[in-house]
């Protein structure tokens, strides 16, 4: 009986600790967002400007370098959806309607989700390992004692870079996915390109695009902040850095899927 009570108490304590850590994590993330935007606006007048060069570097490393894999994955998803769509709709003799299925699902759901997951695996882990490694090497302390705010030098460029690059990547992924789907559909059931795009444009609304780019912005916040906060939390040694890097990817993907589900349910 006593052992059971001990175990129960331990579980309650562990749950409480996890809850506190979660709140601290969210608090730090919100603080970093506020500091980043404050420095973006007020930085030049207080001697802490966020450099355009650093933002561009982040756009290149987080965005442009992800383009090939995003295009490849998006195109693959477009073809897979076309295959499955044609297969399912053929049961009802409605396979010619497959373009509507692609138009309704890719911009709204698949393009942001796939792009988010790819960027989380690439940029989220890169951020966590880069910032964690900088912490271990004392580089963040060095920036501080040089009078350079680490938030404006590291955090703000990474956050803003991803807020710019992820919507662009999602737009590219949408086009790549729909194009690949169109090519497959034309090759298999003979729907012409013009007819396909006319169908797509007839059903995609501004609300769908708002979903698409709204999710991109939401995922950009999640990926960058999880990577940054986990990187900043690294202390000790290489093992902790490795754990933080792995953990950042898992957390980013989990957060993206949870956020995507919440958006789908609520909107």
């Amino acid at each position: 009986m006593e052992q059971r009570l001990d175990r129960l108490a331990q579980r309650v304590a562990d749950t409480g600790l996890t809850a506190i850590q979660f709140v601290a994590f969210v608090g730090q993330a919100i603080r970093l967002i506020m500091q980043s935007f404050h420095l973006l606006v007020r930085g030049p007048s207080i001697g802490q400007p966020v450099r355009l060069r650093h933002v561009v570097e982040e756009i290149i490393s987080g965005g442009i370098q992800s383009l090939p894999v995003v295009i490849l994955m998006a195109a693959t998803i477009g073809i897979m959806l076309s295959i499955q769509g044609i297969h399912s709709l053929r049961i009802f003799g409605a396979e010619t309607q497959v373009s509507f299925g692609l138009a309704l699902s890719i911009p709204r759901e698949f393009a942001p989700l796939i792009t988010g997951i790819i960027v989380a695996g690439r940029s989220g882990s890169q951020l966590a390992s880069r910032i964690g490694s900088m912490r271990l090497n004392g580089e963040i302390d060095a920036l501080t004692v040089m009078g350079i705010s680490p938030v404006r030098f590291i955090v703000a460029p990474a956050l803003i870079g991803l807020l710019i690059s992820l919507p662009i990547l999602v737009a590219v992924a949408t086009v790549a996915s729909l194009t690949a789907g169109q090519l497959y559909i034309e090759a298999t059931i003979g729907i012409a390109s013009q007819a396909f795009w006319a169908d797509v444009l007839s059903v995609v609304t501004m609300v769908d695009l708002a979903h698409c780019f709204g999710k991109a912005v939401l995922f950009a916040f999640l990926i960058s902040l999880i990577g940054i906060v986990m990187g900043l939390g690294v202390s000790g040694g290489a093992e902790v850095l490795g754990r933080a890097t792995t953990s950042s990817v898992v957390t980013c993907i989990g957060a993206i899927i949870a956020a995507d589900t919440a958006v789908a349910l609520l909107l």
Binding site: G47, Q48, M134, N137, G138, E139, D141, A142, L143, T144, V145, M146, G147, I148, S149
Partner: peptide, 17 residues
């Protein structure tokens, strides 16, 4: 941070970027 601009620090490990 403004005050710290007035000092220089050389860390034991170098702490170079």
């Amino acid at each position: 941070l403004r005050l710290l601009k007035g000092i220089g620090v050389a860390f034991q490990s170098g702490a170079l970027l």
